[in-house]
């Protein structure tokens, strides 16, 4: 597949981080990477309020729009998990497919599993570098996963890899009664 050089000048990123210093560093790094608009929020609640405003003002969606979110995990009063859950599940969410990169120094298995089960797109561990931030953004762009809605989950497919040697159809698509494929 042909490769392209990215032009981020029309891209709008939402940065949600309670630590002033890290927030301003992420802001600077994303601007340097060429992002046209980087909006800063101090916690999940501020971010939800803004996204809700987007939903309520579709005529301003272009100006308010957010193309992807980078959020910290631990914040108060609404943390990164709460924000992610709202984006994926709330009827007021402006885009339930919005890519969300969660960033945290807290990388134990439980936290990773919780973020995954709430529908995180990518997970970025602190300490971060420019290269690790860029790689996660590239993964969002180049390797998007289909979204799955089951009785217990809504979010990007949690099966990231296909079984080696398996070239058959997607097993979940085999029975019409069990599965429906929707192209948005």
């Amino acid at each position: 597949m042909a490769a392209f050089r990215y032009d981020f000048s029309a891209v709008s990123v939402m940065v949600v981080e309670d630590n002033d210093y890290i927030r301003s560093v992420l802001f600077g790094v994303l601007q340097s990477l060429g992002c046209g608009k980087v909006s800063k929020f101090k916690d999940g609640k501020e971010a939800v309020d803004y996204l809700q405003l987007m939903s309520m003002s579709p005529e301003r969606a272009g100006a308010l729009g957010v193309d992807f979110v980078i959020t910290d995990m631990l914040m108060e009063p609404v943390d990164g998990f709460g924000l992610l859950k709202w984006i994926r599940m709330s009827k007021d969410s402006p885009d339930r497919f919005l890519p969300v990169i969660m960033i945290s120094g807290f990388v134990d298995r439980d936290a990773l599993a919780r973020a995954r089960d709430l529908g995180v797109t990518e997970f970025l561990a602190k300490p971060f570098s420019v290269s690790s931030v860029a790689k996660k953004i590239e993964a969002v762009i180049e390797r998007p996963r289909p979204f799955i809605r089951s009785e217990t989950y809504f979010g990007p497919d949690r099966r990231r890899t296909r079984l080696a040697g398996y070239n058959g159809p997607e097993r979940r698509e085999q029975t019409e009664a069990d599965c429906e494929v929707v192209y948005e």
């Binding site: 042909a2 490769a3 990215y6 289909p146 979204f147 809605r149 948005e184």
Partner: peptide, 23 residues
């Protein structure tokens, strides 16, 4: 259906590669 699989348009890729020629 018990499970729905959504294949949304890759809006972000379309945006960052708009007007770009393949390398």
């Amino acid at each position: 259906a018990k499970t729905r699989i959504f294949k949304p348009r890759n809006k972000l890729k379309a945006k960052v590669t708009a007007g770009q020629s393949p390398l």
